[in-house]
Design a binder for these strands. Sequence first.
DNA 1: CTTCTTACA
DNA 2: TGTAAGGA
Length: 136
Amino acid sequence: MSDEFRKNMALFPIGIVMKLTDLTARQIRYYEQNELVFPARTSGNQRLYSFNDVTSLLRIKELLEKGVNIAGIKQMIGPNANAHEDATVLDDQSEVKRKELTDLQLHSLLKQQLLVAKRPGQVSLIQGELSRFYSN
DNA sequence: CTTCTTACA
DNA sequence: TGTAAGGA
């Protein structure tokens, strides 16, 4: 029940989100304009994204690549953001989709840890191991 | 150096 | 979407 809290904690700036999602700052801000994501702001007006925001962006990216437009995505995000195939053009098996989402979160988590450990000084216990799985 | 907004190609 | 400009 407190896990949700951490997932909703506004933690990373747009630069990190760019690496995590492979989206440009332009795109990320654009999606925000269209109310697809709602990042928090720092006192200095800097955007801060939560884990959930990153996950949302990854999902948005997915849908966009499948040919769904902003308006379409907007409609299927608020109400029931869970596994739903709008019978029209979406083709996912609820079971498979759920696993993919979990994997994306895991992927983000690992990358996040890598990034956090990169700055301070090479004092990470997992640095070596994880480095072999990610190019960034 | 990173991010922000606005505006134009 | 990309990118330049001008400020924080």
